[in-house]
């Protein structure tokens, strides 16, 4: 009796699921509609005064403490003279800026601004101190020559970022980050502007086509399985040795114990 009445008082067991589904569809659909309309207009408005004004407000509230009200820099942060839009889009778009604290290097973290806000900041900084612009979409399609990109990557990038883009250690707590899962725009901007301790690879060193080829190579190795089997993080002898010593030697020891044990 008690069980039945309790059951009757409750909603249909699927009610929660349906409710969640409706909620997701409404919010997701609403967001999609909203963001698609804003990106559609962003292209045309990118350099409009309204966007620059928006960027200026964001800069004054979030960046000026360290970089100065007129980008002149302070004791806590460098001047932003000549940095341009690409640098801002990289630093803010990957969450490295605003920095959480001073340290060996600014860490990648969840972004603090939406794409529109980031572009507004970039437009504002570029309007005051022109520099390398955000790269053209046509160079970011990963449709170049992966073999050429691989050769250029091994010569110019692999010593820090690892031949498979797995990243690596530098001096005094700094490190070159992993390159898998990084947007093509951000890879391009990093090469162009040399964020933090990364050197600059300007268009005379690596032409825009070279940069496109490097992105093609990185996306190729990211999207194609390694022919040699499971990569173990592509970290080389440390990971592979650890696996071999623990599991390979462990299996051998286990077999030896079984081999010499008396049958019962």
């Amino acid at each position: 009796m008690a069980r039945r009445s309790r059951k009757a008082s409750r909603r249909h067991p699927l009610a929660t699921v349906v409710l969640i589904a409706i909620g997701l569809v409404v919010t997701g659909g609403g967001y999609a509609a909203f963001s698609s309309t804003t990106t559609a207009t962003a292209d045309t408005e990118i350099t409009s005064q309204a966007v620059i004004d928006e960027g200026e407000k964001l800069f004054a509230a979030n960046c000026a403490t360290c970089h100065g009200m007129s980008l002149e820099g302070t004791d806590d942060g460098p001047a932003l003279i000549g940095v341009g839009a690409a640098s801002v889009n990289f630093q803010v778009g990957t969450g490295r800026m605003p920095m959480a604290m001073q340290g060996p290097q600014a860490m990648q973290k969840p972004t603090q601004f939406t794409d529109e806000q980031t572009l507004a900041l970039a437009a504002y900084v570029a309007s005051i101190s022109p520099g390398p612009a955000i790269p053209d979409e046509s160079l970011l399609q990963a449709d170049g020559d992966a073999a050429n990109g691989g050769e250029l990557f091994r010569i110019n990038c692999a010593m820090c970022h690892n031949v498979a883009g797995a990243g690596g250690a530098l001096t005094e707590g700094k490190y070159a980050p992993e390159l898998t899962g990084v947007l093509a725009t951000h890879i391009y901007e990093a090469m162009l502007t040399g964020p933090q301790n990364m050197p600059v690879f300007n268009d005379d060193n690596l032409t825009p086509e070279d940069k496109r080829d490097i992105i093609t190579y990185l996306k190729y190795i990211e999207n194609n399985p390694s022919p040699g089997g499971y990569e173990l993080g592509a970290l080389g002898p440390v990971a592979e040795g650890l696996f071999a010593w623990i599991f390979g030697l462990g299996a051998i020891i286990g077999l030896m114990v079984w081999l010499t044990a008396k049958s019962n």
Binding site: M159, L170, N197, M198
Partner: peptide, 21 residues
Amino acid sequence: CPVALYEQQTHHLLCPCHQST
């Protein structure tokens, strides 16, 4: 080894094999 890990702010040049800087 090829020494090529250049840090453009600290101007350190690091060798990847044995960490000579």
